[in-house]
Design a protein around this nucleic acid. Sequence first.
DNA 1: AAAAAATGTGCAAACGTTTGCACTCTTTAA
DNA 2: TTAAAGAGTGCAAACGTTTGCACATTTTTT
Lengths: 343, 343
Amino acid sequence: MKSTIKDIARKVGVNPSTVSRVINGTASISNETKEKIYEAMREMDYHPNSQARRLVNGSTFTIGLVIDAGNSDAYSNAFFISSVSAIERVTQDRGYNLLITNSGNCQNQNAVENLILENKVDGVILPVSDVTDELIELLVSKEFPFVIMGEPEKELNQDYWVDMNNEQGGRLAVQHLIQSGYHCPMLFVEDKATVFEKNRIQGFQKQLELSGIECGESNIVECGTDAEQIIAKVNMVLHDFTKVDSIICTNNIVAFHVIQELKKGGKRIPEDMGIVAFDNYPLAEYMEPPLTVVDVNTYKLGELAANILFDKMKQIRKDDKKSLIDTQMIVRKSTRGRKEERQ
Amino acid sequence: MKSTIKDIARKVGVNPSTVSRVINGTASISNETKEKIYEAMREMDYHPNSQARRLVNGSTFTIGLVIDAGNSDAYSNAFFISSVSAIERVTQDRGYNLLITNSGNCQNQNAVENLILENKVDGVILPVSDVTDELIELLVSKEFPFVIMGEPEKELNQDYWVDMNNEQGGRLAVQHLIQSGYHCPMLFVEDKATVFEKNRIQGFQKQLELSGIECGESNIVECGTDAEQIIAKVNMVLHDFTKVDSIICTNNIVAFHVIQELKKGGKRIPEDMGIVAFDNYPLAEYMEPPLTVVDVNTYKLGELAANILFDKMKQIRKDDKKSLIDTQMIVRKSTRGRKEERQ
DNA sequence: AAAAAATGTGCAAACGTTTGCACTCTTTAA
DNA sequence: TTAAAGAGTGCAAACGTTTGCACATTTTTT
């Protein structure tokens, strides 16, 4: 049988409130009493009951993390999920628990709303893909603390979000290429309209400008997600943009198809064409050639999200509504690289 | 302000217990009263308070999932983590919540023990890598429901576990190779002593035997995890085991190094040497040649773990203490494959 | 037509904590 | 030396539910 605070009190011969105060250190208690209580707790293997605590405290000491049910793409899930570990650690360090839910509906109710309305969590972290107008409205109207992972399309004035710095990533990729002796980079994006692609494009263009390389819209190619289409675009580049000597791909898969087709066309990598890609799949270093990538520290990303959430929960206002984590280059063999960077 | 069951009762003019019974359907209530209560609940935006429920029910309606803090290997984490989605879904379908914790220590207490002792969860799923004797002892002594993911070294008689069927995976790989026209497969494992490697070896040998191919210990190579070592082993095979025409690698990384070295040695894949690997990294299909793999459905694995846990929680005895998920072949270009399997 | 069962509802205790108030006794400040 | 402050503890209410018992009314069974 589980022992309660009353059992301890009875055994020691004090009032339950005294035991509670010893446990929480909320009042000064004589050392003598304290000792007896601690000993009784040890003897009776006492552990506080979280549920009772939560009820009376009106706080769950739990935060919710929403995982995107719809998005089955193994990696983008993994990308998000690798920050889970960070979020979990921060949560635990603060004495909180981490509850996970998908964004789907259970019964007739939205799972996330359920979390909030039934008082299961004190705050929530959710991926931008799961943000709906109704959900935001609910969160805001209840003044419920939340942090979004990823940049929203349109910004309300209440929402805080964290993301990788795609603009900086775009700049970094160009910078690396220029420094490595390439002169005419091209950018392959899947879909120009996506928020993160827009930012990458912006960084790309900005850095080209800074480097004094002229660049019109024509240096950006929308290649979609389909292998055939990517291949077609590669050939277009090969025939129509003969000056192009390097390609920045929006992810590892695109890079793979690009490299494949370039090799087929007799191009040597990195000599004839340098390749950089966003993301860093576990096997990227084993591609041929090993892929130079723009990587992001997802641990830091998760950590940041969690810390901001806790600040909001404590009513500590952060002045910045958005927080970005800078990317870094991992230089491998698909670009010439500067000698000192070569790994 | 949040409305409570008492507010509803007052508004409708009934006793709180009546409202409770309507919500839970635990007694027959007149339709008239029911309707009035439902309406009041809607009007006042009532949602039950989980904490109070949990306290009185003595149940948390929450299960805990332990993620391995120590294991930072991106993929093996991803492997485990991709079953999270399944566990989450099962949990939600059953009206439960999912709490995540790492296995580390918070303050002076083991995080998992804390979960159990402080009554935060009703059951727990944990990876075999986090199983310690003390933890098992605690779980067993409290009769606390748990399921282990992965096969334990030594088996207590109280523990239930799920895992991929490594023995069947070993058999499957051999079977595929034989059917594809290879005659002398070799198995590259990282460490013979590991439980799952042992099982793979067993399946490997058994299937060879069934196929009438004689095979001593010599067909199994322990190649460690280091690139140099793997390369050395490949060359050893090339020189000393000239009859070998195919290699089964214990994971994608080993396969990569093996392929790399074989190509360097002038071997064509799959013509001169067939390669099969366990696991299916997101980029495996983009290797050169695309890698034929023994894959496991991690979603099913998670689902199984969760369902068994719920059975245990409901005191439904499963007769089998271990449950295995069979693997399947994904045939790509690194083996000749049978035509009809080729994808 | 009487007995038994079912329906519908209220009362109050219980779940295991925390905490405001009150009180006594000691210590410190003026 | 008296007043104020602090230390140490108890009492009882509160958090928001659920549920066993009780009871009245209706319906069903014999």
